[in-house]
Simulated scan of single mutants.
Amino acid sequence: MISIKNIFRKSSLALIAGVLLAGSNAVQAQDAVEGKKIFDANCATCHSIESDVVGPALKDVHTRREEAWIKQFVKNSTEMIQAGDPEAKAVFEKYGKVQMTSFAGQLSDGDIENVIAYVKQESENPTTAETPPAADGTTIATAAPQEVSFMDLPLLVHFTIALSGIIILLIIAVLIMLFRLFVPMLGDSIYDEDFRNSFAGRVLFLMRGDATVVTGKAKDEIHSSHDFDGIQEYDNDLPPWWKTMFYVSIVFAIGYMLHFHVFNTGKLQAEEYEMEMEEAAALAALNADDPNAVTTYEILTEATALESGKTIFNTNCAACHGQEGQGTVGPNLTDEYWLHGGDVNDIFKTVKYGVPAKGMVPWQGKLTKDQILEVSSYILSLQGSNPANAKEPQGEKM
């Protein structure tokens, strides 16, 4: 007989094991939650899970790199590159030689482990398409275009296609019947030279396999005194299709000259280019999402707008430009030198559309128009602040 003591012992062990397993899952989930907060605050500016941004996509990075290597790279990638680490150098070269911000004094080993746990969790989740916010901050649902098979088309479309096919077949059948009916009635008269040279005769003999109407006649008459080392030249017709195209080109050239150079009723290339550029400028002015569209924003000076801009800057821009705008990976924003223009409208466009070739990501899908204007105004408010360890000037003085 099994003793009650043994049953109690086994039940207790099972209960403890279940509690431990449940606890480990809870801890892992909590690590991922904490890792998401750290990722959004420090990494999301330059990295995404699914796609390359400034830096590489982080999906499955825990399977491609050892955890110790990831920690070291996050803390000080520059040191690893200078030490000659091949993987660190490869990442540096592949992504435009943009050095990753060093987080040695900001993130602990535990923080980095939490971020890895978050990346692992996201890597194992099914890929979901992100929907960018609209200009007012709301989310727009976008549907991918779907292919429609032929059988799913409306019945009217099927009927129209079938009716068109039947009509074409009837026309062909009638032509064949007429051909078979009238040709025997003509008898040997179809071989008369006058009939053969007529349009109807040419078509008839072309249908019977005589390609003379296309290739021309072979007269087999030798040009007089045309003998070159035993090579003789025959006086054969040029192909009719070639002669027809030649005549048409002459008529076209005369019409072209009169239209463009005599009567001046047509626009030459330079004039067409100017007209198209004017049309493009007019269309750009109507499209607020066109990078070439003219904007007339005024710099914001209200304290609330600048404070909001500072919050946006610290959350999204400080990772590459420094907390005080002194410049780290990105350029210094506190001096008088600008790479892409120092007016509020220039900065607005740089923030909105980004400069992907230099690692600056576009923010139009993440920030609203008002938020971009606020952060642009805040950036201009940093002019002349002279922070410590400011990066050297880049661009042109404004």
Rank of each mutant, 00 (worst) to 15 (best):
E50C: 01
L163A: 08
A281E: 14
F103M: 03
G325E: 11
V294W: 02
V329E: 10
H259E: 12
G209D: 09
M80S: 05
E302L: 15
F179E: 11
E374M: 08
C43Y: 02
D229M: 10
T350V: 05
S48L: 01
I140K: 14
G365K: 02
V98T: 13
Q364K: 01
E278F: 12
P240F: 05
D40H: 00
K10L: 15
D194H: 14
I222C: 02
N236V: 01
T350Q: 11
A144R: 07
M360G: 06
E130Y: 13
D227I: 10
Q99C: 12
V54T: 11
A270Y: 15
T45M: 03
I16M: 13
D370L: 02
M257G: 12
A144K: 08
F246C: 06
P331L: 07
G110I: 06
I161P: 00
L238E: 07
I231S: 05
P291S: 02
L169R: 13
H158K: 11
Q383K: 10
E233S: 09
E50W: 01
A17E: 04
A144W: 00
L286W: 04
E93Q: 05
T63C: 14
S198A: 03
I4S: 15
F260L: 10
V344Q: 04
T295P: 01
N332E: 12
D220N: 10
Q232K: 14
A319P: 05
E124N: 09
V375S: 01
I171C: 09
F228P: 00
S198G: 06
S385C: 15
T63E: 09
T328D: 11
A284R: 06
D109S: 07
G359M: 04
M360T: 00
L107E: 01
L283R: 11
P184M: 01
D237E: 14
